[in-house]
Design a protein around this nucleic acid. Structure first.
Lengths: 227, 227
DNA sequence: GCTTGCTGAATGAACCTTCACTCATTCTTC
DNA sequence: GAAGAATGAGTGAAGGTTCATTCAGCAAGC
């Protein structure tokens, strides 16, 4: 009687926790994870061409589905982008939270955050690009929806900073939120110039350690008084 | 979609827009400022709505000009954006160069750069937004053209860092270009969250000094040897 | 096992709105 | 009144969205 509760796609919020599977052996296969396939294709194409220059038909082609199929899973092109964003940020946040919880000192945590974000940028550049670009698309529905999720990420960083300040290992004359923004921005800035240029191999590791040194050096509390 | 109720209607802004005084006494003269008027309108509207969501007719209206007039000064909508970018970055670069040249130590220079960029973000947020958004629009002619100018700006920062390293006041185990990117990114990140939220008054001053402290603290060579 | 009928996911060509751009006409200035 | 500047309604193309049609999968009837 349950008549397959998930059987109908109809652009609903259907949260498929479907992760990585489906070896795409042949062309037509099981129709299980169309939604996920479309999302992946979208990340790829949006990152390469930008949202506005991407035709819905291109996403469809990349996903190996018909144009119309996309509208069985998403209400509109805008909604597709928004879903993409929410879906991915969500995962990133939970992953980050778990990783950080395991570490003891704020300093280690901060270092790990830097590593993780740069790692994400390196490994899933496309996703990272889409995310940061989206955050910058101006005052639209997208921005309104994206902002809360994004701010949650910043809060996560800020709370690490605050922790360090309570402990006394971090200087307390700077606002945790400001530091969070600056750290995020620094990481993003590096990603940006990578995106503009050519990504060298090994750049990641070097950047991460240098950046950690820089940021930790700046934030560590010290006797030294700044002029 | 409703009009972006993000930015308050500042009537004061209007007046400063009128840089070039066109004598209305004799009606329209050699309207040499049409181009400039269009550029200013474009900055404003692009920042509010984003490039792709902005209609050429909206820019025209904001500039107080007919649609067709825009095409007397710019070849296309894309060209308008590109011209805008080049024109403004150019000015920013020369201004920055002059400001910095006057200062003695790399430390002061860096501090001034931070002040200036944040000041720009505060005073001409719209322009700053357009610039950073544009830099992120993917693989297009725009990107190809925008990148060099943008990189020139980064180079300017990097050379200050390099100077400090030669002098011995800055730690030399970090790449100047990395630092430049990080600094730019940090500033940009702060702007971004300002843009997402509400800009408090006085936030600028505080942010600038905190950020200076943070960055200089991070970059200063730990050996306090005076050369 | 084979046929028939039903269901609904998937398709993609056509539709229809939205704009970037054009150009015949009108206005300004000298 | 000529020359140029400015106008803005009109045009054509582009591309997001729709929907009539297809067809794989399944169940019941034979």
């Amino acid at each position: 009687m349950s008549e397959g509760s998930f059987s109908k796609p109809r652009a609903a919020k259907k949260q498929s926790v479907r992760a990585v599977d489906d070896a795409e052996a042949g062309g037509l296969k099981r129709t299980g994870d169309k939604r996920e396939r479309i999302l992946r294709a979208a990340v790829e194409v949006f990152a390469r061409q930008g949202f506005y220059k991407t035709r819905v038909s291109e996403v469809a082609k990349a996903a190996g589905v018909a144009d119309g199929t996309i509208y069985l899973y998403f209400d509109s092109k805008d909604q597709l982008l928004l879903s993409l964003f929410e879906d991915r940020i969500e995962k990133l946040l939970t992953f980050l939270a778990k990783e950080i919880a395991a570490l003891a000192s704020p300093e280690e945590k901060l270092r790990r955050i830097i590593e993780l974000q740069l790692g994400l940028l390196d490994g899933e550049r496309e996703l990272a690009e889409v995310v940061t670009i989206i955050v910058r698309q101006s005052n639209t529905l997208l921005r309104e929806h994206a902002a809360p999720k994004f701010l949650a990420y910043l809060d996560a960083i800020a709370s690490v900073v605050a922790e360090g300040q309570r402990e006394g290992t971090f200087r307390s004359d700077v606002s945790p939120h400001l530091v969070a923004r600056a750290v995020f921005g620094a990481l993003d800035g590096i990603a940006l110039t990578w995106a503009l240029g050519k990504p060298e191999v090994g750049a990641l590791k070097r950047s991460a350690s240098q950046l950690s040194a820089l940021i930790l050096g700046g934030i560590r509390s010290s006797e030294r008084t700044s002029p």
